[in-house]
Design a protein around this nucleic acid. Structure first.
Lengths: 206, 206
DNA sequence: CAAGTTAGAGAACGTTCGTTCTCGCTTGTA
DNA sequence: TACAAGCGAGAACGAACGTTCTCTAACTTG
């Protein structure tokens, strides 16, 4: 047996940690955070309470870890959409709304974890509220990069972010993915209008 | 003493009921619903538990009453914005985003009660989820009325609704009211683009 | 095999939840 | 003055919360 398995943070520990995070994410997302106790999570994940508190010293710590993991997943989705969208920043921006449409179609879709968590805990858990704020700010910053590449004014990035946020909550509450298509159409209009206004005469770019 | 004060639902009962609703709304909105117990509400409202349960047979019932009251307040805000906005449906639509900007400026603003409540309880309380869905649908229907008046295609209403939703969550999380102005600018672009596309040559209307 | 560390299962801690009940006290009517 | 009804204050209920502790079995190391 290799010496690495003998001490702390063995590979298995890492797998268990991930398994707990996935389970907690699923339960919190579907039922809300306060509604899911540590006992329910223990049962669902098949892990002892001792192990749970060994890996996550408190529930708040666990919630933060769940959010951090979701942050990574969201970034991957966005980057994949951008990478496969097209070569032009305009189409890469629009591809993000196609990604949303696919996400909204998932059976257990219930809106944005960060928005939901902010509504439930944002008023009483400042550390979590900060985490959520940073997540949203990073997405807006990514949009701003792409908008800058198009040559459109920076304001457009904020408008596109608002469309993405609104699509998520609207789709969650309505229970359909229509909002993604409406947001995509609106985004297209806003982008093309901004480009037409900003660059009255076309020049070859790139 | 008038006979009306002697029986059930005296004027004072109605005032107490409203006072409880206002207090519950404030507490739920600022801290989340699960985080506010009936005891905390009792203390804050200065009402006995007996009276509380006499007026609202359960916490879920109370939450529904709070949401219904907020629904009325929201409708009033929208109608006031429409009434004072202008005579044209275009400007009335835009006036809604000015209303949002004022709302976001309030000290205790923490997003849309319905969105927050959906995130916390939507997965486990179907009746409340339905209430929230109906609230959002009624707002979208009101937008659709105004959009129809402008002559723009109905799709525009959905786009404008998404902007309003996104502005609320974005402003709540960011802690600024910038989102209202961005949403207003985006809405103006979308409306005017829709009108220009739909009505290529201008004709005098009204 | 012996000694020592780690793990799981779950009882137990004190608190808080939503809800109901008990107890005096006030109040309106005869 | 008697009495019935309703009230506020808050104790009490069983359940569930987040967290810690106990006990025992299994494994690691020599």
């Amino acid at each position: 047996m290799p010496p690495a398995t003998r001490n702390r943070t063995t590979p298995q520990t890492e797998q268990i940690r991930e398994h707990i995070l996935i389970t907690a994410d699923r339960l919190y997302y579907s039922r809300g955070i306060n509604a899911v106790g540590m006992d329910a999570l223990r049962n669902e994940a098949g892990v002892s309470l001792k192990r749970l508190y060994q890996l996550f010293p408190s529930k708040e710590n666990l919630v933060e870890a769940v959010l951090n993991r979701r942050h990574g997943i969201w970034n991957s989705l966005v980057e994949t959409a951008i990478a496969t969208g097209s070569d032009t920043p305009r189409d890469q921006l629009i591809a993000i709304y196609d990604m949303l449409a696919h996400w909204f179609d998932e059976d257990d879709f219930r809106g944005c974890v960060f928005i939901n968590t902010f509504g439930e805990l944002g008023g009483t858990a400042p550390h979590i509220a900060t985490l959520i704020r940073e997540h949203k700010a990073s997405f807006q910053a990514r949009l701003a990069e792409l908008v800058t590449k198009t040559g459109a004014p920076a304001t457009l990035a904020h408008q596109l972010a608002i469309l993405a946020e609104g699509a998520q909550t609207t789709a969650a509450i309505a229970g359909t993915n229509d909002a993604a298509h409406h947001a995509r159409a609106a985004a297209t209009t806003l982008i093309d209008t901004a480009l037409a206004t900003n660059q009255p005469q076309a020049t070859t770019t790139g």
